[in-house]
Design a protein around this nucleic acid. Structure first.
Lengths: 220, 220
DNA sequence: CGACAGATTGATCCGTCTCAAGCGTGGTGG
DNA sequence: CCACCACGCTTGAGACGGATCAATCTGTCG
């Protein structure tokens, strides 16, 4: 998967680093640079009127972001210290004249992001709090083979970020955490550490749909 | 704006027509064709577990859709009788080798859709029912210069579609309609016709943010 | 080790969903 | 062209889930 992104390495690029909490770009800014995340975690978000914030997606190493040709449609902020590779958009466009892979890669990435967001919307609007959280854990493990195998997750973001991603208030999220813990789906260690129990892992091999529908609703 | 889409007319293309309610493609299907909508209205949607449906976007003439290179990430259905131009994806990719505009056009469309969806999520998760509806009217007028000028709208879709787009139940949507009517923001004629009143039009010149925040909340 | 931001817990409120009847419009057939 | 029928929209009453407000607790970092 890293190989796929090296398509762009023939365009002009350079490394950069953003520290925790820093804004990488803001919605509405003109865009001249796109990024590939190499280490850390980044969030894409839309900031609403009254300080309300909707996190659109969390990005992990290997993910591409900011490939807008005109201006930024959302903001990007570093969740943790983040190392990225920056690509000049002009030179990526130029590269397209020489290599057809560029279009394929960009359009696939864009469509993938769109599809993922579409499903995210469906989930956060139709699932109750605890099931949204399970959905989130499932989604996290898709981006981390280690977590998928062992069930151990080290959350890079705080609860407020998760709440804004799942469209819940921190208090409600906290109650959802406790509910899943009580029911034996997760075990927590500290604020950022958690492991999916055998119980949850066994269920997770099936489709997320079945998992959430059949197992999270009824009381243990 | 129609001129921009004729970029693709150098690729192989043909016309097609779908009647009301017909599925154009389903999520998960392999994709070999992309479309430009010429007349009518199409909806993109994700179908959840228990018959729950989230409408991601309504498409209008001039809009491009289905430009996935591998498989469909969402379903597309005709809201009304719809006339489209179909483009072979293979030949669009081929065209990219000869014309750099192809990449620019596709990536811009994809990013535009992503940005719009991101904002849609923010709205439907943070706004109360009546304000979501106002947001929807505003969004509709962006796609129809005539409506923007006169304030008269002929809805192509039924209330159930609007409800699934705004993530509301039909009953709640109905109450939101009545509320806006009572407060003098809209007048309705029949099930599909409505006009934004002077009151609403005057407010609409400002940003949707101000409009929804300042004017829809307090009782008249 | 100490302090502070972030997380938890409890009590209460409010908006939307749900279930159940009545419409009314728009489309159909006579 | 009009009358009728059916589907979709409307309206009401009640329940429920998440939001809110406020106090306390606890990891994490200096």
């Amino acid at each position: 998967m890293l190989a796929a992104t090296t398509v762009f390495d023939r365009a002009s690029h350079w490394p950069a680093r953003f520290s925790k909490g820093v804004t990488i770009y803001d919605e509405g800014e003109p865009s001249a640079t796109m990024y590939r995340l190499d280490r850390g975690c980044v969030r894409l978000q839309v900031n609403g009127h009254g300080g309300d914030r909707q996190i659109i997606s969390f990005l992990f190493p290997g993910d591409l972001f900011g490939f807008c040709l005109d201006e930024r449609h959302a903001s990007a902020e570093a969740v943790t210290e983040a190392e990225v590779t920056c690509y000049s958009i002009a030179s990526v466009l130029d590269l397209n004249g020489r290599s057809a892979e560029v279009l394929v890669e960009l359009v696939n990435r864009a469509n993938g992001a769109f599809g993922e967001l579409a499903h995210h919307v469906e989930k956060i609007t139709h699932l109750p709090a605890a099931e949204r959280l399970i959905w989130f854990f499932n989604w996290l493990t898709h981006h981390d083979p280690t977590a998928a195998a062992t069930g151990v997750i080290r959350l890079p973001m705080n609860h407020r970020d998760i709440a804004d991603y799942l469209s819940l208030k921190p208090e409600t999220l906290s109650r959802a955490f406790r509910l899943l813990e009580t029911r034996g789906y997760i075990q927590r260690s500290g604020r950022r550490g958690l492991s999916l129990t055998r119980h949850a892992l066994a269920l997770r091999v099936r489709s997320p749909e079945e998992f959430t529908a059949l197992e999270a609703r009824p009381a243990a």
